[in-house]
Amino acid sequence: MKPVALILRAAGINRDVDLVRAFELAGAETRCVHLHELIEDASPIASCDILAFPGGFSYGDDISAGRILANRIRHQLMDAVWTHVAAGKPVIGICNGFQVLVKTGLLPGFETDADQLPQRITLTDNALPRFVNKWVDLKVESGTKCVWTRGIDTIECPIAHGEGRFVAPPEVLDRLESNGQVALRYASNPNGSDRDIAGICDPTGLVFGLMPHPEDNIHPNHHTAWTSGADTAATSGLRLFENAVRYAAERAAQPA
């Protein structure tokens, strides 16, 4: 049985296709389900092994990126999502998905009660407040608890966002660091993020959010320098998805 990755669709989500492909290549079965369908019937979340929030501009990123979708999830889908998290199943939010995880409070997820998840972090206007699409080098933080980044040192992939600047009060940043929740840092900070942070996980290491798009570096012809013979496999983003799929498969194989 292949683990099932459920990819959430909503108005303005647009990197669902890229994410489906990444999970397929990583060995998962994929289901792309619209938010409204899940609000009517959340059982697809209960029956999935991995929950994924893709990139895009949910509701146009109007008001602020991910805000409206995060509120809708908080109001209408939190029980199902929290049950998934509490069961120890992997979650990923990329770009707009990361913004949603942060604005629902699922990240950093210091608390253990779904009703008490304050927003402690934000992702806001880049230091130069406009959209930017370029490739970045990412370093996996040594000692991170993140399950998704296990065994990986570096990843190269594009960023594509206007509101990707990671901002949190110093005490939250300290706690993230001391807790092993910082997963990825930019080698060269592209947006003014606090402490170069590109991605974090929750205290279990299973809920993972990041601004860059590893799902757009999963093919030998994706890398910006593939035509000059770069070793693209060594920096591929696919390994993140393989880690989660492997974890989900092993988890499912364990007796309940």
């Binding site: 647009n14 990197r15 296709v17 890229d18 492909r21 990139g55 406009r130 959209f131 930017v132 699409n133 370029k134 490739w135 594009p158 594509a160 798009h213 799902e215 757009d216 999963i218 093919h219 012809n221 994706h222 910006t224 320098a225 035509t227 000059s228 770069a230």
Partner: peptide, 23 residues
Amino acid sequence: IVRQYDHEVQGGSVAKPLVGPAA
């Protein structure tokens, strides 16, 4: 201009508008 456009979405990018190791 190029950097303000998402030229990667949909996952099919092979040759980008700016090329070379430093793009």
